[in-house]
Design a protein around this nucleic acid. Structure first.
Lengths: 337, 337
DNA sequence: CGAGGTTACTCACACGTGTGAGTGAAACGT
DNA sequence: ACGTTTCACTCACACGTGTGAGTAACCTCG
């Protein structure tokens, strides 16, 4: 490899070294069908380009083509779960399938989207959770389409919430409790899951589940709050025998709460989470949970991006791959006497 | 807000609307000290710019200035922990402190760094784990400095490994076991932690800890493997009474393994993890662990970036904030008879 | 009243690409 | 032999910005 006095090589450097014009270099390296070149020239330019380790300057290319090839995923500063990583992986592949690159940006108190849009001109902005009004406004002003992943995720959440109920019903449980959260950040997820669980219960002819909402993170105070609620719900002639939890963290909270008031899981109460966290299979008892599959989501977003950015056909409502029950120890079949 | 026939507004649009030259717009909006403008003109240009929602085109700006303002964090496709999210947050702030933006890129089978470098011309490439040789070579060829976060992280890992041993020693434990992993992906972390733990044990005059290495993920087979090793180590006249685990996941594996051979945690064996996963405080028993603090790492990376990119003074070896023991139920004081 | 300085701007170039239009030479068809 | 097509390439513009150099009008001062 030869460097041209420290600077990175440009197309002009390649052209000079190969003894052709800069246009020739551009045409050959971009493989146009309209222009023809002799095999020798093509080979020579390719060789020189490799030799100089020529890489086109992304900014210049973006400026000329009018599109940056970058899709930005803006994520608010929310604790990242393994599930989220899976989603990012699926989105990365989806964006790559449209010949673009997905970059992820963490929106933080000191790092507003506004600041970063000065450095990055994405072709589209992806949001999982609703972004601050200010930020979406800025994107719209810069005529950057804001695409939300919310609706496919919502469908997954609905499927997951329903699946929790359906699985417990299949095990013979009729009186269910639902442990949801009131945290604003994850509100979109929790409402979808809750609503779907309620609907599923109604569809199955079950009595309306008892809902308890926890504010704040899954810590000691959450455990005592859940324990208090649980004591109430498991008393009486028709006690709750199973609990659908917002996610595995709160399922673990529920397990701890049940223990603290002398209930055995799963003998006295079955508990099912959502997310299939890596630790879920290592808890005592191991946690029955719902595992998401984002391949359908990825395919949907790919089609949507093609539609919005490349003028492709309108994205069809791809049937997203259904979440899946991972059966473990925290749920048990209820033997009706 | 007024749009100029669909297109996003350029500096020329602002200039025309304000009745000044394009240079004037550029000077005013960038606030140069060399040029002076009448207050009226400044106000008018500012107003028009706001009215047209003018945002400078990032690619054009990058092309002209010769620097993109983007620092790229390339992460291999490794399960994301909450800890990793904390690191990304710290790095995001560090990069922002140098007036640049940190974008994260997931390196995947279908999404090679090479492909994305065509779309993104970062000013620097950050790596946590060593990138594929091919990728670093490409970055170097494009004269993009590759900056590794490995060394500050290594110091944290060393501190954490030592802390595990020191904490257990302070509780009266002398015969320690170490549960490490042989997974190549996380090899840098595991070797640092292991080496530091060994050194710490030697410094404290403890017998050399017994090391068991697990291959593969923290699943059922890992539990049986650890159980087998644990049975051996806890036998005999001088049994192991405490275990330092690679992370919280493997600490949970160790707890399950101990249970499976009839050992009580922490009565028969103390177990300490690393990472302080959200679920760690919800396990039964709750997990004693080491929590990382990345503020020092962030400061160090900020100085390093300033040095490499802005020619600032050489980065000093900032004393990174020490990790911290989170004492919970899985460890107990050993009463010597 | 003219030299020199300040104020408020504008001109014009460069950054590195991609691409439609053009061009000279060779090959081809009649 | 001559018009026409094909081949292999080059010219020149445009994308939108930042900035050093220039410039006309106005003010200051001896």
């Amino acid at each position: 490899m030869v460097t041209v006095n420290g600077r990175r090589a440009t197309a002009a450097d390649v052209a000079a070294a190969a003894g052709v014009s800069r246009s020739t270099v551009s045409y050959i390296l971009n493989g146009s069908d309209q222009q023809t070149f002799s095999p020798q020239t093509v080979a020579r330019v390719r060789a020189v380009a490799a030799d100089l380790a020529y890489t086109p300057h992304a900014a210049a290319r973006a400026l000329r083509k009018g599109q940056s090839g970058i899709v930005l995923l803006a994520v608010p500063d929310v604790p990242a779960s393994a599930n989220f990583a899976k989603l990012v992986a699926a989105l990365t592949d989806a964006v790559r399938a449209t010949n673009r690159s997905l970059a992820t940006l963490a929106i933080r108190p000191g790092n507003r989207l506004l600041d970063s849009l000065r450095d990055i001109s994405p072709q589209a902005l992806l949001e999982v959770l609703p972004l601050p009004e200010e930020d979406t406004a800025a994107a719209v002003a810069a005529s950057i389409p804001v695409i939300s992943v919310a609706s496919p995720i919502e469908r997954l959440d609905e499927a997951a919430g329903a699946l929790q109920v359906q699985h417990l019903a299949a095990l013979g449980h009729r009186r269910l409790g639902i442990l949801t959260v009131s945290d604003l950040q994850v509100r979109p997820f929790s409402t979808s899951r809750l609503a779907a669980a309620r609907t599923a219960a109604a569809d199955l002819g079950l009595p309306a589940p008892d809902v308890m909402a926890v504010a704040g993170p899954p810590d000691e105070s959450a455990i005592t709050a859940v324990a208090r609620a649980l004591r109430r719900l498991t008393k009486g002639p028709d006690p709750v025998t199973a609990l659908c939890c917002f996610n595995d963290l709160f399922a673990a909270v529920a397990v701890a709460a049940a223990r603290s008031i002398g209930l055995d899981v799963p003998r006295d109460i079955s508990i099912v989470g959502i997310d299939d966290e890596p630790l879920a299979g290592l808890l005592g008892p191991t946690l029955t949970t719902i595992r998401y599959d984002y391949t359908g989501t990825g395919a949907h977003m790919r089609d949507l991006l093609r539609h919005v950015l490349d003028g492709g056909p309108a994205a069809t409502e791809t049937s997203s791959d259904a979440p899946q029950v991972i059966e473990r120890e925290s749920t048990r079949r209820l033997d009706h006497e």
